[in-house]
Design a binder for these strands. Sequence first.
DNA 1: CGATTTTGACCAGCGC
DNA 2: GCGCTGGTCAAAATCG
Length: 300
Amino acid sequence: MMMMKAKDEPEIAYGITPLSDHLTTGIFEIGDGGGETERNSSYGFLELLGFQDYTPSLLELSQQTAAAPDPAAEPLQESSVTVNAPATPNSSSISSSSTDADPPKPPVAATADDEQEKANKKLANGEGKKKGQKRQREPRFAFMTKSEVDHLEDGYRWRKYGQKAVKNSPFPRSYYRCTSATCGVKKRVERSSENPEVVVTTYEGQHTHPSPVVTRGAHPNPSPLSPEMAALGFSPPPVHVNELHLPYITGYFPMDLRHVTSRPSSTAGADRRYNDQTASNAPIRDFGLLQDVIPRMKAE
DNA sequence: CGATTTTGACCAGCGC
DNA sequence: GCGCTGGTCAAAATCG
């Protein structure tokens, strides 16, 4: 919980999923480890996942989106290789968390007893930790997603419990908790100060229940992500997927290459792994594990 | 009317 | 010890 995240919580690039109008440019495991501290090491995760011969176009993409300092430089469609991305329901409505008419200020009338009661409750909840005893952190993963909406649908239901202005960023950070009573998963959502088009979503903890949205079949965990992330019950955030981009979703996850269905012509020569087994007939026939995610998400 | 969001206050940990 | 900052709480407001 503390602000000194960079010191003891290095972030390791972990994945990449360009998805239509929500373009996840990097997935980062945040936890114990060495000295890596920044989110823009998008190359590393590819190697971590054994993605040795990633293509130049992919690298350019990650660089462009993860490190581009100029928000006006690249329209979403260009950097996301989107050819014909339709507007999604979400994309047309920016989060209203801070744009609504100013609400009336609640009266400030807490008594000393009230305050004491609050403090007691916090302690009773186990939220308050003894000094000198660092709070144990759940494994965390961060997504960088190019999106107009702050809060990306990921198949789980979240309740916002806080919002804070963040230092060195004009954008507030929002705090969400999984609404499931037995699930303590949290996530933070904030826009990158460097690139306002990029939403950084950080997940903490693991779901103790299947996604309430993704219930088809026997996939309590439909994530196509790395085994580590899958083991955490972790699911990818972007869900508004243009069919045209589905091949990319699976394509960027080495463990799911068999599901890859097509590639852009410009890189076809360099990428036989984006094989042609389905490219010519059914470009979206098989989404891999994501096929359990996409339709339901879109329906929501 | 229950669920969710908003928002100010509070707390913990770190650096100085 | 103090100030700063991130994270959380919980009452009130809002939404569906």
